[in-house]
Amino acid sequence: EKSTPNGIIPHDNLVIVRMRPDENGRFGFNVKGGSDQKMPVIVSRVAPGTPADQCVPRLNEGDQVVLINGRDIADYTHDQVVSFIKCSCENNSNELILLVRPN
């Protein structure tokens, strides 16, 4: 889905999911997709007992990731998206903030 011409992303039905990494720096979910895969960024798996599983609201398999820490990731490659998720240095609280479109 493309954003509207003036650059504003439609916010209908989108959910903000926030989580902190575990002691290994992992959030516990898998992502697939990216501009190089010609697919939107989708959560393909959420491991039980991980921050992604236990945060409220919960991240679910099939959710589409729209923003990562406020950044629109629509035009980034798979590897870049993974980097954005792992880089928690963008905010002081070490929290990952995702805006997702629920499955």
């Binding site: 979910f29 898998n30 798996r45 792992k86």
Partner: peptide
Amino acid sequence: EEKDECIIATEV
């Protein structure tokens, strides 16, 4: 034309 169907998922 054949296309690669390889889709990569990464654990984060």
